[in-house]
Deep mutational scan, measured.
Amino acid sequence: SIEEEIKKAEEAKEKGKTFIHGDFVATTEELLDELLKRLRKKL
């Protein structure tokens, strides 16, 4: 679910890890923020 993806992305951000969502690879905090923004729009 979208909620689960958001939670996983937030955890990755806290730990400074890379998060992959489909073909979107978030390797930096900026990219994770962008991904979180996109996911929240889908809610």
Rank of each mutant, 00 (worst) to 15 (best):
I6Q: 03
K37R: 12
T27S: 14
R38N: 11
E14M: 11
R40F: 06
H21C: 15
E29Q: 13
K13C: 15
T28I: 12
F19E: 13
E11T: 07
A26Y: 14
E4H: 09
E5N: 08
G22Y: 08
E29H: 09
K15I: 05
K8A: 11
L32S: 00
R40A: 08
I20W: 10
V25D: 05
T18R: 11
T27D: 15
K41W: 00
T27Q: 06
A26M: 04
L36P: 00
H21I: 05
D23M: 04
A26I: 12
D33L: 06
K17G: 15
E11G: 03
T28G: 07
L36H: 02
K41A: 14
V25N: 07
L43H: 05
T28F: 11
V25T: 05
F24I: 09
T18M: 12
S1K: 08
T18C: 15
T28K: 00
E11W: 04
K17Y: 13
K37Y: 00
R40N: 07
E5H: 07
A12D: 04
T28Q: 01
L36Q: 01
R38H: 15
K15H: 11
L39M: 08
L35Q: 02
K17V: 12
E30G: 07
K42R: 11
G22W: 11
E10H: 05
G22R: 00
K37I: 10
F24R: 00
G16L: 10
E29V: 14
E5G: 07
R38G: 08
E14R: 14
E10G: 03
S1R: 10
A9S: 04
K17M: 14
D23G: 05
F24V: 06
L35I: 12
T18V: 13
E11D: 12
V25E: 10
A12R: 03
L35P: 00
L31E: 15
T18I: 15
I6K: 03
I20E: 12
R40D: 08
K17L: 15
E4S: 09
K8E: 05
E5K: 08
F24P: 01
A26S: 06
V25K: 05
K7N: 07
T18W: 14
K7R: 14
K15W: 05
K42H: 11
S1T: 11
K41P: 01
A26K: 01
A9M: 06
K13E: 03
T28E: 03
A9V: 14
E10N: 07
K15R: 10
A26Q: 03
S1F: 11
K41E: 14
H21G: 06
E10M: 13
A12L: 02
E30R: 08
D23H: 02
R38D: 12
T27K: 08
D33F: 04
K13N: 02
H21E: 13
D33Q: 02
K41R: 10
I2V: 08
G16M: 01
L36W: 03
T28N: 10
L32P: 00
K15V: 04
L36F: 00
I20Q: 12
I2H: 03
T27Y: 14
H21M: 05
E14I: 13
E5W: 15
R40H: 11
D33W: 05
D33C: 15
L35Y: 06
E11L: 07
A26W: 09
K7G: 05
E29R: 13
F19T: 14
R38T: 10
E34D: 07
E5D: 10
R40T: 08
K15D: 08
D23P: 00
E4A: 12
E3H: 09
A26G: 06
E4N: 08
E14Q: 13
E30Y: 06
I20V: 12
K37S: 12
